[in-house]
């Protein structure tokens, strides 16, 4: 149990519509609107908040949208009681030092149905509107886009990138469960098929079925 007086609810807000409709806001916008109202009540700015919890939407998306860089996120989604669990988790997180101030949001465009679908590739999601249509598909094109800029800024070459795969293969050779164990060279990597310039086949992770306990 938390120590008495160690954690407090410092702000809360709800949007009220007698008709039960907010036709001017998407689901993500509802999360944000309520969050901003609660911040105002508590006298906090986004930079004062280091934890974000929500269900339905992605807590990282809500944090991004609000300009929060969290050290703690909680996306526990177990139905309508998720938010009570978020409160308990937030108390534990604050007591254990994982976060100082946690924002818990809920937003649901249940009647208007604007921007529902949170995580996914729904056409009104941030992803579909501002990223998805440019054509990334899977890790080789989703995680790699900033790398050319990094290479230019820090003088990283394609040989340097290839060395990562070479060293990882050396590690794999010592792992009896590894799928590929034969040593490879920088030349092997740089001669392998281009997947997403500057990333070649041997720089990409293997696709496997996996399980661990």
């Amino acid at each position: 149990m938390p120590k008495p007086g160690s954690v407090a609810i410092v702000g809360a807000a709800e949007l009220v519509s007698p008709e039960g409709r907010f036709p001017e806001l998407s689901q993500l916008g509802l999360h944000a609107k309520a969050a901003i109202m609660a911040m105002k009540e508590a006298g906090l700015k986004p930079s004062d908040i280091d934890g974000v919890a929500c269900a339905g939407a992605s807590p990282t998306e809500v944090a991004f949208y609000l300009g929060i860089t969290p050290t703690y996120v909680d996306g526990t989604a177990v139905g309508g009681c998720s938010f009570m669990i978020h409160v308990r988790h937030a108390v534990a997180a604050i007591e254990s030092g994982l976060a100082k101030t946690v924002l818990i949001t809920h937003g649901e465009s249940g009647r208007s149905g604007i921007g529902r679908g949170g995580f996914g590739f729904a056409r009104q999601s941030l992803n579909a509107q501002f990223e998805g249509w440019t054509g990334p598909m899977g890790p080789p094109t989703m995680f790699t886009v900033p790398v050319l800029r990094y290479m230019k800024t820090y003088g990283v070459t394609e040989e340097h990138l290839a060395m990562v795969a070479v060293v990882q293969r050396e590690y794999a050779a010592r792992n009896p469960n590894a799928m590929m164990k034969d040593p490879i060279t920088i030349e092997d990597v740089l001669n392998s098929r281009m997947i997403a310039y500057p990333f070649r086949l041997l720089m990409c992770c293997l696709v496997t079925d996996g399980v661990a306990r």
């Binding site: 054509g135 886009v145 310039y197």
Partner: peptide, 22 residues
């Protein structure tokens, strides 16, 4: 042009190679 990759694996509706840029 801040950064990009040139994808050689087109998702539906794309013709490779094509750049995904920032």
């Amino acid at each position: 042009l801040l950064s990009y990759v040139i994808s050689h694996r087109p998702p539906p509706g794309f013709e490779a190679p094509f750049a995904i840029a920032v």
